[in-house]
Amino acid sequence: MRGPGFVALLLLAAALVFGAARLVDNPYAFFAGYVVLQYVVLATAWNILGGYTGYVNFGTAAFFALGAYTTVALHKLTSLPLPAMMLAGGIVSGAVGIGTGYLTLRLRGTYFSIATLAMAVVVQTLITNWSFVGGSRGAYVVRPAEVMGLDYVQYLFLLMLALAVIAIATARTIERARIGTGFAAIRDDEVAAEANGVPTLRLKLIATALSGGLMGMAGAPLPYYVTYLDPASGFSLSYAVNTIAMPLIGGTSSWVGPVIGAVLLGTLQQVASVTISSALSLLIVGLLLVGFVIAAPRGIIGWFGK
């Protein structure tokens, strides 16, 4: 399918999702749906670096929280509309992505992953000690009741839905473009890729910028969603764990994998949080991940040929 046709189909799917959520006629549908969509964006963003180029990033929480804290700072300084703040959050996290990439991309495999984890700790420490955005006490964000006649939570849901469409369209475009071939060559054999003309450093920086930027954009609406944000929740390890588990369970070789993984795992966690306990939701992730690593190492899409 050509790009424009695919985007049209995505938009149609998004409209159906929004319509369905309204039909449920329960505000909780939007609360829970927002989280699932947020994970669709995070998992898709993670997969651009982790799945396509093979660099496993454990620092999702840092990029995500940087987006959220950009919003906190902008909320105190300005009265920008939320979409503009999301863009700002994306730029900040994308820039941090490039910086981290420049410093760490000479590391391979586990060493790169450890470096991203360390980066997350450093960023969290900085934010925790920056009193302007609340420091360790946390920051309160009072959100309006509605925007343009739309309930604010529905508005947040809609924004995240739009971001999910953007993220999926970006991932699929990369997959089919020349740059996707370059990413795959880096994942398979970086030395051979460079020897065959692939500008490996530049492509890896593009991947970290895109991946980090999308994560930042996903985090930007968070302060308005939770209305109280502290470093411990913004930088929660569960973001990093979930964001790695979702593409692995869905499959990393195509844009479909992270989407399937995020919808499946995200929904399961929401259901478990309500029906059993919220502590159990991370246990589910762990069990599923172990199961998939053993039974389906190529994820759910690995079951369907390719």
Binding site: T181, G182, A184, D189, A192, A193, N196, G197, S253
Partner: peptide, 19 residues
């Protein structure tokens, strides 16, 4: 050092696209 996840034809695409 072939690109393991690609087909043979895709392996050759890399230098054509990038060199």
């Amino acid at each position: 050092r072939p690109f393991g996840t690609m087909t043979l034809a895709e392996n050759l695409r890399v230098p054509i696209l990038y060199a």
